[in-house]
Amino acid sequence: SGLKHLEKLLKFVDLRFIAILISRYVEIITYDDANDSPPGSGFYTPDKGFTWIGIHDLDATRAFYLNRFLALIFDNDAALFYQLCAIPMVSTPSLLEEESYKDRCTRISAEGVPELEYAFELTAPLQPYAIKKQINAHGLKSAVENIPIIEPLLYDTSFVQPLSSLVNSNLNLDELEMELTLILNAAIVRWQIPFFEAETIKHWSEKVKGAINLGLEDVIKTSNLPLIDIYRILGLQKLFRLGLWHLMELQKIALKIPVALIEPGTLSAENFSILACAREEIPEIPNFFNKDGSIQSEEGTLVPGTKAIEHLEEIQMLKKRLEDLFNN
Score class of each variant (00 low, 15 high):
Glu7Asn: 07
Lys8Trp: 04
Leu10Asn: 12
Lys11Ile: 03
Phe12Pro: 00
Val13Arg: 11
Val13Leu: 14
Arg16Val: 02
Ile18Arg: 05
Ile20Val: 15
Leu21Gly: 07
Ser23Gln: 05
Ser23Arg: 08
Asp32Gln: 13
Asp33Pro: 04
Ser37Pro: 04
Ser37Trp: 07
Pro38Gln: 08
Pro38Phe: 07
Gly40Asp: 05
Gly40Val: 06
Tyr44Ser: 10
Pro46Met: 04
Lys48His: 11
Lys48Leu: 12
Ile55Arg: 08
Ile55Met: 05
Asp57Glu: 15
Asp59Pro: 05
Ala60Thr: 09
Thr61Trp: 07
Arg62Ile: 03
Asn67Cys: 07
Arg68Pro: 00
Leu72Tyr: 02
Asn76Thr: 11
Asp77His: 05
Phe81Thr: 09
Phe81Asn: 07
Tyr82Arg: 14
Gln83Glu: 15
Gln83Ile: 09
Leu84Ser: 12
Leu84Arg: 09
Ala86Gln: 14
Ile87Pro: 08
Pro88Val: 03
Pro88Ile: 03
Leu95Val: 13
Ser109Lys: 12
Glu111Leu: 15
Glu111Asp: 10
Gly112Thr: 08
Val113Phe: 10
Pro114Ile: 07
Leu116Met: 13
Tyr118Asp: 11
Ala119Cys: 07
Ala119Ile: 11
Glu121Tyr: 14
Ala124Gly: 01
Ala124Val: 04
Pro125Asp: 02
Leu126Lys: 12
Pro128Val: 11
Tyr129Cys: 05
Ala130Ser: 15
Lys133Pro: 01
Gln134Phe: 15
Asn136Leu: 15
Gly139Gln: 14
Gly139Pro: 01
Leu140Asp: 06
Ala143Met: 11
Ile149Ser: 07
Ile150Phe: 12
Leu154Gln: 03
Asp156Phe: 07
Phe159Ala: 00
Gln161Met: 02
Ser164Gln: 10
Ser165Cys: 06
Val167Ile: 15
Asn172Glu: 15
Asp174Cys: 04
Leu182Gln: 14
Leu182Tyr: 11
Leu182Trp: 10
Ile183Pro: 01
Leu184Tyr: 08
Asn185Pro: 01
Ala187Gln: 04
Ala187Cys: 12
Ile188Ala: 12
Ile188Tyr: 10
Trp191Val: 02
Trp191Ser: 04
Ile193His: 03
Phe195Cys: 02
Ile201Asn: 02
Ile201Leu: 14
Trp204Glu: 09
Lys207Gln: 13
Val208Lys: 00
Ile212Cys: 07
Asp218Val: 01
Val219Ser: 05
Thr222Met: 07
Asp229Met: 12
Asp229Gly: 00
Arg232Tyr: 13
Arg232Ser: 04
Ile233Pro: 00
Ile233Gly: 00
Lys238His: 13
Arg241Cys: 13
Gly243His: 00
Leu244Lys: 00
Leu247Gln: 00
Glu249Arg: 11
Leu250Phe: 04
Leu250Gln: 02
Val259His: 06
Leu261Ala: 06
Ile262Gln: 15
Glu263His: 10
Ser268Arg: 08
Ser268Phe: 01
Glu270Ile: 06
Asn271Pro: 00
Ile274Cys: 07
Ala276Gln: 11
Ala278Ile: 05
Arg279Lys: 14
Pro283Ala: 01
Glu284Thr: 13
Ile285Trp: 00
Pro286His: 08
Asn287Gly: 12
Phe289Lys: 03
Asp292Cys: 07
Gln296Ser: 14
Gln296Lys: 15
Glu298Arg: 11
Glu299Phe: 10
Thr301Arg: 13
Val303Met: 12
Pro304Cys: 08
Gly305Phe: 09
Ile315Thr: 01
Lys319Ser: 09
Lys320Phe: 09
Arg321Pro: 01
Leu322His: 05
Asp324Val: 07
Leu325Met: 15
Phe326Glu: 13
Phe326His: 13
